[in-house]
């Protein structure tokens, strides 16, 4: 693996600065826009660094397909898709093993926050389109999704935001970008609820020691705060 790393990405940290000039606990610049799709009930566009995601919510509406109906609560239907032009190599459109998995974990990350029991027998469709991928697409998608859900007026316990903690050159860093994700050691996306900071998603690609994991969690808690503020600012700006 080590031999595959290009020369310029061998040292990802120089003088405590990363390749894009950020410090280790710094997020990429965040930009959120609400209400970008008029035909949807709720929508949001988000840019975190070079990762760009479009989230749209349709519903609550009649459940489709009918056999998936749940008479006690609404069903959240998440579709995560990387658009064909989102990476340097074309992505084959349509569901894949990866997109199915991310759709499922995103659904789990958001389901626990939404008051689904208020809409028995209905379905909520959430579409997450990755326009440009530069690491951390699932985290970015979750952050956008909760803004779109709030815009759609769907009752929630709180907002959900997500970021990733990674290990590059044996050091912990927040919100990895493309090269850091590809040539770093570990990537751990974390999603949290704004109210009680409960974790709704935690995955890990690579490995952490026990101590590293603990510091990573506390780093995530700190790093996620600006994301909640960005979400809040975007929603308030839309209604100003």
């Amino acid at each position: 693996m080590a031999s595959n790393i290009p020369e310029k990405y061998k040292t990802l940290i120089k003088n405590n600065k990363r390749i894009d000039g950020r410090t280790l606990d710094e997020l990429r610049p965040v930009k959120i826009k609400v209400g970008v799709i008029p035909s949807a009930d709720g929508s949001a566009y988000i840019e975190i660094g070079n990762t760009k995601v479009l989230a749209a919510v349709h519903g609550p509406k009649e459940m489709f397909p009918r056999h998936m109906i749940n008479e006690d609560r609404a069903v959240l239907n998440v579709r995560y898709a990387m658009l064909p032009f989102s990476t340097s190599e074309r992505v084959r459109p349509g569901p894949s093993r990866r997109s199915n998995e991310i759709s499922k974990v995103t659904r789990h990350a958001l389901e626990s926050v939404i008051f689904l029991e208020e809409y028995p027998g209905m379905g909520i469709d959430l579409t997450l389109d990755i326009i440009q991928a530069d690491a951390g697409t699932r985290a970015t998608a979750i952050t956008a999704a909760s803004v779109a859900l709030a815009h759609a007026g769907i009752p929630m316990k709180g907002l959900v935001a997500a970021t990733a903690i990674g290990k590059i050159n044996d050091r912990l860093a927040v919100d990895l970008n493309g090269p850091e994700d590809n040539f770093g050691q570990t990537d751990m996306p974390i999603a949290m609820i704004s109210t009680n900071k409960n974790i709704t998603l935690l995955q890990m690609d690579g490995d952490f020691s026990k101590e590293e994991f603990k510091t990573a969690l506390s780093m995530a808690k700190k790093a996620i705060e600006p994301l909640f503020e960005a979400q809040r600012a975007a929603l308030q700006k839309y209604y100003k």
Binding site: G42, Y119, H151, A152, G153, I154, M156, T195, L235
Partner: peptide
């Protein structure tokens, strides 16, 4: 806590929110 996006309203001892969007 607030459950939805809206404007806060208080009538005597009841706290409610007027929704700005939603079904």
């Amino acid at each position: 806590y607030s459950k939805i996006l809206g404007i806060l309203r208080k009538k005597e001892h009841v706290i409610s929110i007027i929704p700005l969007s939603g079904p």
